[in-house]
Design a protein around this nucleic acid. Structure first.
Lengths: 197, 197
DNA sequence: TTTTGTAAACAACAAGCGTTGACTATTAAA
DNA sequence: TTTAATAGTCAACGCTTGTTGTTTACAAAA
């Protein structure tokens, strides 16, 4: 396994090229055939890279997906400048919408029960939500156990977003966000009493 | 795939025998080698059953695990007569303890990052928690959206249990249950104001 | 430019997976 | 007891996976 620098600092141009080719091929195949149906061979053929080279960069196709998901969700959050800011009700609302839309979009790539795909998305997204919420709570100078609150809130949020996205005729993400906002807030202890419609 | 009756009603004795053998072999191997290291061949050799027969009963080893988990968690709940009763703070506390202990015990079978194993446990356990909580809420005649509340609570509960079980020197399950009880209750809207230590 | 490290290509490997078709054994009903 | 249905066995298949050893190509330093 070649050196995998998370921050892409001074990277051998060959490495950069190969990774880009693999990522592009993967993204395309994901849209075409879905995750389960895509083999490592498919990816390397499309990328015009040797199969052994793939394994020099990623342990398996799951690791590749993991990296893709993490990157694209992070981008989504940065686009909405979520990571930089602090806790407000409006920021939380924006986060909920972001998660809902991201999950909904992800699930287009997986036919019915591509279990492993969904599990990977879940892990990556949840982790980033949790980190963000913990940051918010600490910035807000919360007196209670911020870690525990962030865990509960991130799981609850992801679960609700997942369910919403699997509801075939779901409301607009913005409306749903309004509905579940007090519920998430109660996990963060940011309001005294949640009221669910 | 042979007929898979969830309730074991009038089942060909050969089928019964084969399934039992497979389940037993699987359970043993899980304890010995962990899930990832166990192959279908291992299972069928141990069970003294042809490999093709395995595929007549389960699509793959993941489906087998799924069935095992569902069954054993259900048993665990029944042992504590959780499924039969209604919502009380004490029952919720017992549920939390049950989940914590089950997750902790499950994770003994998976070395470090057996990701797929954990994901399967998560799905099965969460689903059953959710069903139970929804039942409790409806029995209690809740006026709000019980489905949404049950989803949030089950995800939050599982997430907290998971984190607790991965904390290498965690407190006793009973103590932890006491700590997070108000948090879970707030998702179920069963108390006005959670206070986290 | 030459040298040196290292990425990528290539070919071959053992292993596991999931499926198939022909044959045998068991079950439950006529 | 005979018979029809079906569960199980067996051997083989094509395919994907992850790995390895060798050779070639290239990037950055001397």
């Amino acid at each position: 396994m070649l050196a995998t620098t998370l921050v892409e600092e001074k990277l051998d141009p060959r490495v950069k090229r190969t990774r880009t080719l693999i990522q592009q091929a993967f993204t395309a195949l994901l849209a075409e055939k879905g995750f389960a149906a895509t083999t490592v061979q498919d990816i390397t053929e499309r990328a015009e890279v040797n199969r052994a080279t793939f394994y020099a960069h990623f342990p398996d196709k799951f690791a590749l997906l993991e990296a893709s998901i993490r990157q694209s969700f992070r981008q989504e959050m940065e686009k909405r400048t979520l990571s930089a800011c602090h806790y407000t009700e409006e920021n939380l609302r924006a986060l909920i919408v972001t998660v809902c839309e991201f999950v909904a979009q992800s699930n287009q790539h997986c036919t019915s029960t591509e279990n492993q795909f969904e599990a990977l998305v879940e892990t990556q997204v949840k982790q980033q939500i949790q980190e963000l919420l913990e940051l918010w709570l600490e910035k807000a100078g919360a007196q209670f156990d911020t870690k525990t609150a962030a865990i509960a809130a991130s799981w609850a949020l992801y679960g609700l977003a997942w369910q919403w996205s699997h509801d075939k005729n779901h409301a607009a993400a913005e409306d749903y966000a309004g509905k579940i906002l007090p519920l998430i807030e109660s996990n963060l202890q940011m309001n005294p009493m949640p009221v669910l419609a």
